[in-house]
Simulated assay, not measured.
Amino acid sequence: MTEVPAAASAAPQLLAAYAWLIDDRRWTDFGEVFTDDVVADYEAFTCRGADALGSRMESIHAGLDATQHLVGSVLVTDRAGGVRVRSHVQATLVRRGLPGGSSLTVGARYDDRIVRVAGGWRIAERRTRGLWTRGNRDILPWMADRGRFEPSDSPQKGRHT
């Protein structure tokens, strides 16, 4: 019997919980949405484990004045290897006082595999793919140096997954 109906109910809540964890800076609570052994590929880095991912996100977001993560277009499917959830995210990051502007908005896609655990559903695998940026990339210096995205306000060219 497929898990898709139950997962389809849980997935939007799970993704919203992740967005709020980031925006509320609750780095030690990543176990609420990720499995202990999650494998998370964010293109610029890969982590294994909810605690390691929380620590990495804390370091990436250090120095930011505010963030807002909006997740939508949630699609749940039953595929080989388990229940898959695809979604879009727009993350706006704010660091006031920088030359070139105080905000950066990133458009990306999450491809997740979620699993049912005793406490509900958790993300067991995440693959994030950046699609576009708008604003001051110097807000996240490692992003400005990557060369993965095309200039601000334009869609990503090249590989699409």
Rank of each mutant, 00 (worst) to 15 (best):
P155G: 04
V83A: 13
E58G: 12
R113S: 05
R84S: 15
N136A: 08
W121F: 07
A8V: 05
A52K: 04
A40I: 01
V106S: 02
Y42R: 01
G81H: 14
D24C: 09
G63A: 05
G54I: 03
H160L: 11
H88K: 12
S152D: 06
V83D: 14
R95I: 13
R84E: 15
E58Y: 03
Q68C: 10
E58V: 00
V117I: 09
A108W: 01
A16G: 06
K157V: 15
V39H: 08
Y18P: 00
L98K: 08
S55W: 01
M143I: 12
D153G: 05
Q156S: 09
D37F: 00
F34Q: 06
R96L: 15
A144Y: 02
Q13G: 12
D153Y: 09
A17D: 12
A16M: 08
R116G: 00
W121M: 04
A62G: 09
W121R: 01
R137C: 06
H69Q: 10
V33A: 04
I22G: 02
G120M: 04
E43S: 10
R126Q: 13
S87D: 12
D112R: 02
A11S: 10
T133G: 06
C47D: 11
G100Y: 08
S152F: 01
A16H: 11
R129Q: 14
L140A: 03
P5K: 06
V117K: 04
A7K: 04
F149K: 02
G82N: 13
H88Q: 11
I60T: 07
V85R: 12
D24W: 07
E3R: 13
F45M: 04
L98R: 12
Q156C: 07
A8Q: 11
V74G: 14
A118D: 13
V115A: 05
F149P: 00
G119A: 14
E32T: 10
A124V: 07
F45H: 03
R134S: 13
T35W: 04
T35Q: 01
A118M: 06
L140I: 12
V106G: 00
D29Q: 12
R148D: 08
V76L: 11
P99L: 12
I139S: 03
D112Y: 02
L104T: 00
A8N: 05
L98W: 09
W121L: 03
D153H: 11
A6F: 11
A62W: 06
D36M: 01
S154H: 13
G81M: 14
R109F: 02
L75K: 14
L15I: 10
D111E: 07
T46S: 11
E125A: 15
G72R: 12
Q90V: 15
R137E: 13
H69E: 07
T161I: 10
S59V: 09
A17C: 08
L53P: 00
G54P: 00
L14H: 01
D112T: 01
T67S: 14
G97L: 14
R137H: 04
G49E: 06
V38S: 03
A91V: 11
G119Y: 04
Q90G: 13
R109C: 05
E125T: 15
A80E: 15
P155Q: 02
